[in-house]
Amino acid sequence: MADTGRHLDAEGWRALQRKEPEAVAYFARHLAAPCDVCEEFLAAEQEEDALGLEALADEALGEAAGPAREDAVGWARLRRRLGAPRRAWLAGAVAAAVAAGLAVLVLPQVMRTETTPSQRIKGTVPLVLELAAMAKLPNGETPPVRDDTVLPPEAVVLLHYHSSEAADALLLREAPGLPTQVLGRYELEPGTNPLREGADLAGVSLEGEQGPVTLVLVAWPKGPGSREAVEQAAGQGAVPPDAVRARLHLRVDPGHAAP
């Protein structure tokens, strides 16, 4: 391998995959400068790539342009393929319209769902947490959702919360006979707000669901340990008995067109 005129070929490539010291030393020097012959060899796909060169190149080439713009459509398509319970996100103008609709619809009404007072240190005011929802139906209607509302599986449930203070929260889905599933983590702001993920409204798609489904928002007032509490509950996939929570009970019925 001492000949200086040597270029990459199948044999040299194999030697490099096996990290033969002579070949490694020679090509480390030779390839340090542009070489049309070697680059032509490298342009072709190689069967063996123990060095992971293709991936190193594609990763760097893919990152060169900087962050890509958000792809809400691609994600919406992908999440339909991922396992139930599916999430749904509404972006842009639709989200704004729905959020406005939610505000009008929800605020004058009594917030639905139960609230469990927290077991906080004596003498402090407990966190008050409430959950309200509306459904987005395929026909474009957005009826309010109350406890025990029956919805078709095509519906997307959009959530609104009221929190008395800033909190770290977890949204879970409970269904009989199925393990509790974490749907998302949120930072709640004081007041009444739609549940958001980035610029999108967080929604829960009911695709693939049937029968009773309960959405549970569990929250810990922001402070030391609140994030850890979220992580612990997420890791266990369970609602800790001492946490503040708000539940929304739904029924999914494929034969049901609208609430």
């Binding site: 594609d58 990763e59 080439l61 893919g62 990152e63 342009a65 962050p67 890509a68 958000e70 792809d71 691609g74 994600w75 992908l78 999440r79 991922l82 396992g83 599916r86 999430r87 996100w89 599933q181 974490v182 749907l183 998302g184 983590r185 993920e197 997420a234």
Partner: peptide, 22 residues
């Protein structure tokens, strides 16, 4: 890896550009 979809969504949004470029 635990099936949390908000995490899948973040990974998708972070890396779809590189994947599409390929």
């Amino acid at each position: 890896a635990r099936g949390e979809q908000d995490a899948c969504r973040q990974l998708y949004q972070r890396f779809h550009g590189s994947v599409r470029r390929v």
